[in-house]
């Protein structure tokens, strides 16, 4: 009998540099009292500074927007782009959906996983915290299959042998 993997946030805490803390503070001030409709924008803005969201930040965001803390939790846990655990400084999203599969995405996924030393089934984060690899549903670039994103950068028509150069020396 298999069990569904329990999806729970980590109890780990973020360590913010003084600069990050100041930036987060400024964001929270900007969203103060704005209410529920600004939750997603606020989470995006904060996470852009911090990389992921821990309980402390979630509580501060709730307080700043003046909404229940559990609502912030509910939203972080629902959306794939919000992270409740540490992720790499750069997120690599490799599409393995239909059109990309037809163009050889399996080899791209394998090449990325091999280069980063990660599991090709589930991806994950490199030990040095440089990269997180995600095997992603359709990224809306099927006309450029196979496709992947490195952070916000788009790369279409990728060939497996290009992967090491694309991901660079950081790994």
């Amino acid at each position: 009998m298999t069990t569904s993997s329990s999806v729970s946030p980590t109890a780990a805490h973020l360590h913010l540099s003084p600069r990050q803390a100041t930036a987060v503070h400024a964001i929270l001030r900007r969203y103060r009292g704005k209410g529920s409709a600004y939750l997603l924008p606020c989470l995006h803005d904060v996470q852009a500074i911090t990389g992921w969201l821990d309980a402390d930040l979630a509580a501060q965001i709730a307080e700043s927007l003046d909404i229940p803390a559990v609502q912030v939790h509910n939203v972080i846990e629902f959306y794939a782009l919000f992270y409740d655990h540490p992720v790499g400084r750069t997120i690599v999203r490799v599409c393995d959906d239909l059109a990309c599969y037809l163009a050889g995405s399996e080899a791209i996924v394998r090449a990325c996983a091999a280069h980063l030393g990660l599991d090709p089934e589930h991806g994950g984060t490199t030990a040095d915290g440089a990269f997180t690899l995600e095997i992603h549903p359709c990224l809306g670039r099927c006309e450029q299959a196979p496709f992947l994103m490195i952070g916000d950068e788009a790369h279409g028509f990728v060939r497996p042998e290009q992967v090491p150069a694309l991901l660079g020396g950081e790994a």
């Binding site: 239909l98 359709c138 809306g140 670039r141 099927c142």
Partner: peptide
Amino acid sequence: DESEPGTFKDR
């Protein structure tokens, strides 16, 4: 939101 697999027109 264009997330239907195979769709890229709106982008």
